[in-house]
């Protein structure tokens, strides 16, 4: 049941096949990910998990349309991704993704205005509602430079959510939050998902967060990122943290990530 490759092709919203992504700098050619395969289905909470520098952000940039793959294909709804678009709203890892010249409210409103997806009145209502959801109503008319890092992140999340994209790409969105706010935001994301059943591709390097948020988890190897495993994490949330299944899955992922030397590791050392 668990393997995505055995499901019918039609249900896949996002299909990533044999994708290699590289950065060309004036002096180096960095291969960030190597021949990655996975597919995300409608209403998946699909988590990409891997150690720092393994290419998680790079995969999101590929799906976002910011980086064309040097090999393989990325398809959404059956058509190849060519350029960035509002059907794949991205929450970036960095704080400077908000426009400093717009207030919190204007930042959230901006994508809706640009894409004309909603009428002026509806857009405004949606913006206010989503700002309320991330708990920033008091800071509605404040410019981003007066917000803390975590608050900026929440604005970025609100901005992406408000547009209701086909797939939401989130790059370690809760990494900058304190434990309590992180928990609240995780719960908020899950309860929103319960209501709206949107599709989200979620990057994290926390095993616990991956299990809580994810319905499926893609485990990537250290740099260059290759697929190590795809696991099922349906039905595990905050309430199951103490439960044995949770512990077993955590241990399993831990072994996959850092555990005993596996054949690929030796291969990687040769390549390096």
């Amino acid at each position: 049941m668990a393997d995505a490759r055995h499901r019918p092709m039609t249900s896949a919203l996002l299909e990533v096949k044999g994708v290699t992504l590289q950065y060309k700098t004036p002096r180096h050619l960095v291969t960030a990910t190597y021949q990655i395969d996975f597919s995300v289905h409608q209403s998946d909470r699909y988590v990409i998990l891997g150690p720092s520098g393994c290419g998680k952000t790079t995969v999101l940039k590929g799906v976002g349309g910011f980086m064309p793959p040097v090999e393989g294909s990325i398809r959404i709804n059956g058509r190849a991704i060519e350029s960035p678009g509002p059907d794949r709203m991205m929450v970036f890892q960095e704080f400077e993704q908000l426009m400093p010249w717009k207030t919190v409210y204007q930042n959230v409103l901006f994508p809706m205005k640009v894409t004309k997806r909603f009428g002026a009145k509806e857009a405004s209502e949606r913006a206010n509602a989503v700002i309320e959801k991330v708990g920033l109503t008091k800071f509605r008319d404040i410019y981003p430079h007066m917000l803390s890092g975590g608050m900026k992140m929440r604005v970025a999340i609100a901005r992406a959510m408000a547009l209701e994209p086909d797939i939401l790409l989130m790059d370690e969105p809760f990494a900058a939050l304190d434990a309590l706010t992180r928990r609240t935001m995780q719960q908020e994301l899950l309860s929103l998902w319960d209501q709206l059943r949107f599709t989200v591709l979620f990057v994290t390097h926390s095993i616990e967060e991956a299990i809580i948020i994810g319905s499926r988890i893609l485990v990537l190897s250290p740099h260059p990122g290759r697929v190590r495993a795809e696991l099922d994490a349906e039905g595990l949330d905050h309430n199951s943290v103490g439960r044995p299944e949770f512990g077993i899955l955590t241990k399993r992922i831990h072994t996959l990530l850092f555990g005993e030397k596996h054949p690929l590791r030796a291969q990687q050392e040769i390549r390096a």
Binding site: F66, S83, P84, G85, M89, M90, F92, E96, A156
Partner: peptide, 23 residues
């Protein structure tokens, strides 16, 4: 202009003159 800001502009589909003017 920071790369992330550029990307978040292109993310909403801004191109050409609108991208220059709005971002």
């Amino acid at each position: 202009v920071p790369e992330t800001l550029r990307m978040s502009g292109r993310n909403v589909g801004l191109k050409g003159a609108r991208y220059v003017g709005l971002i």
